[in-house]
Structure formats: C-alpha cells, structure tokens
Design a protein around this nucleic acid. Structure first.
Length: 105
DNA sequence: CAGTTGACTTGCA
DNA sequence: GTGCAAGCCAACT
C-alpha cells in the first residue's frame, strides 16, 4: 500500500467513526492494514488537507486516551459529542473506544 | 544527502 | 499511576 493510499484509507475509516466514539492512531493504522504505521496515522491528522476538514479528526486520540499535544480544542469538541473525560484529562477508552476493535482482536 | 522530529505504541522499571 | 527506551518511517532541516 502506498503512503497516499494509506492516508486515504485512514481518512475513509475515520469517516466511519460514529459520534460519541473515539479511535486510536494505532487502531487506524491497523484497520488501514499497516499495524506499524501509527505515526503515519498521526501525520495524516497533522497534515489533514483542507478538503477533508469535515472529518471527525477530534475523535482520534493516542493509545492512552490522551489528546493531541497541540490541539486544545479537541477535548472540548469531544465533550460536546458526549465523550466523557477522566479527571486526569484522558478519554475513558474502555467506554468510548470504537467497538470495531473488538471484532478484529 | 544525512540527521532530526514527531497529533504513536509497547514494554519494562 | 508515571517515566524512559526502543522501534517505526515519512516529513522536515
């Protein structure tokens, strides 16, 4: 899979994420067929093209439930969608992680 | 063209 | 719970 295709796949998957759910970068990479490319998934968000700004990129967090290092809005956007945060500022993955993860184990 | 960086993950201390 | 190290590889300097 070429890198551009990888990005495209990530964006496509992201588009399928229901409101009130979150996914991890690593999970996106796995669903895109590249389990070791979690960082590419991160770049896919960091370099999100203008014509894809409508994607719910704010529903993407890292494996620990933490938000992007430089994106204060993300947490607010998620809270608006009903995603709860722990007191320490992390998303409660055990409750809000996209259920797809369970079907692929 | 070589070295560094990073919207990551996993594992161990 | 937190922190550091290694592995990953495209993008950036």
């Amino acid at each position: 899979m070429d890198i551009p295709d990888f990005y495209t796949t990530v964006y496509t998957i992201l588009k399928e994420v229901p409101q009130g759910r979150v996914v991890t970068y690593g999970l996106l990479a796995r669903l895109a067929g590249q389990p070791t490319q979690a960082r590419r998934a991160g770049r896919a968000m960091a370099c999100l093209p203008d014509h894809l700004k409508h994607l719910p990129a704010h529903r993407v967090v890292n494996s620990q439930g933490r938000c992007a290092p430089d994106w204060p809005e993300q947490r607010i956007l998620l809270e608006k969608e009903g995603v709860g945060f722990r007191p320490n500022g992390c998303v409660d993955l055990s409750r809000y992680l996209w259920e797809v993860i369970r079907s692929l184990s």
